[in-house]
Amino acid sequence: MKAAVKRRSGSRWAGWLFVLPAAAFYVVFVIQPLAMTVQYSLYSWDGIGVATWNGVQNYLRVFTDPDLFAAILNAIKLIAFFSAVPVVLGLAIAATIRRIAASRLALVARTVIFLPQVIPLVAAGITWSWLLSSTGLVNQLLSYIGLEGITRAWLGDFSTALPAVGVIGAWVLLGLCTLLLLAGMSKIDPALYEAARLDGAGPLREFVSITLPSLRQEIGVCVTVTVVAALASFDIVYISTQGGPGNASMVPGLEIYYLAFSEREVGLASALAVVLTVLVIACALPIQWLTRDRSS
């Protein structure tokens, strides 16, 4: 009896031992940097010399400096491109591919659509900045169909730079969403569709009543991943516009980088990073809650 108790308490500690390596990594590489960022955000520091205590001044600047606040607003605008377009379009494409699932065309379509996800973001950014340049393919096509009047340097124009960045993001994320949704569709019981068809349901009815509700969790993952990608965007903007022209496509991720490494305002950069982290969590948690599986 005694021995059994001992073994049980021993195994409780053994459990913790198994967690220890992962927990140690988590603390050193996630918790500690996060804690340090929060700490830095309360100082005025150039990254080298001695820091001076600054209280919440950096946070006040994040919300009162029009340039910094505009960057946050731009990130929110990007959600429409990075999130709404890939999810909606992804649903339509996945539904179409599923209907032709048996043909070889489906395999080709899947590959082509997922390809942007495989290409490094930097390469995608460079390719798109060529496509969207004043003599690029986009403008050539527009001129060819007689729309010469609207051609412009899409990434260098104040009104189109941010949407152009958004289009690149949508193109990259569409493949991921399509693939996730397609995987979700494949696990829906075919008997449901058969039953619906026997009851006289058309393709649209099938989609709304069976496909969409069954994909609740997959859509949740897509929306979460893409919203986070929009809010935390950096690579695409850095490669294609660097925030220009005149801050028209500036996003918080890029602003943090500029503040920390070129302006050497590590405190302000950290404060913006903390605000961005809170914003990402504030957006991601409700999405998770809304889309979680109620039956379990």
């Binding site: 967690v19 603390v27 918790i31 340090m36 830095y40 100082y43």
Partner: peptide
């Protein structure tokens, strides 16, 4: 874990840059 967490927090409490 507590030791690691405590250690990293202690390290984080000094003003940045002074080290």
């Amino acid at each position: 874990m507590v030791v690691i967490l405590g250690g990293s927090l202690a390290a984080a409490c000094a003003a940045p840059g002074s080290g």
